[in-house]
């Protein structure tokens, strides 16, 4: 599976709330970030969790977020960042 996004691409995490085993933390859903690394294909954990094959594998990305944009009233410094590994099915172009 070819990766749809490249390093530097702006992306947005889908604001979706499906039931079941999901590895995308709530606090980044709907948030905009930027791809810092393309980590390669990994089997889909949302399928693996239920004893299925997890194929086809999904590209996994390191996405960097400005921490101040993730939280209302963030008390840290403006340059603070948060990095989360996100599977491609959770990302859309921004």
């Amino acid at each position: 599976m070819t990766a749809r996004f490249s390093v530097g691409d702006p992306v947005r995490v889908r604001a979706a709330f499906p039931p079941g085993h999901v590895r995308t933390p709530f606090f980044v859903r709907g948030k905009a970030g930027r791809v810092t690394q393309v980590l390669g294909p990994y089997r889909n954990p949302e399928e693996l969790a239920y004893g299925r094959s997890g194929e086809p594998a999904l590209p996994l990305y390191r996405v960097v977020f400005e921490t101040a944009e993730l939280w209302d009233g963030y008390q840290g410094a403006p340059q603070d960042t948060t990095l989360v590994d996100i599977y491609e099915n959770w990302l859309e172009g921004a």
Binding site: R23, Y42, P45, L60, T67
Partner: peptide, 9 residues
């Protein structure tokens, strides 16, 4: 401060 959330693989 760079926080790494290791929730995937």
């Amino acid at each position: 401060v760079r926080v790494h959330d290791s929730t995937a693989d």
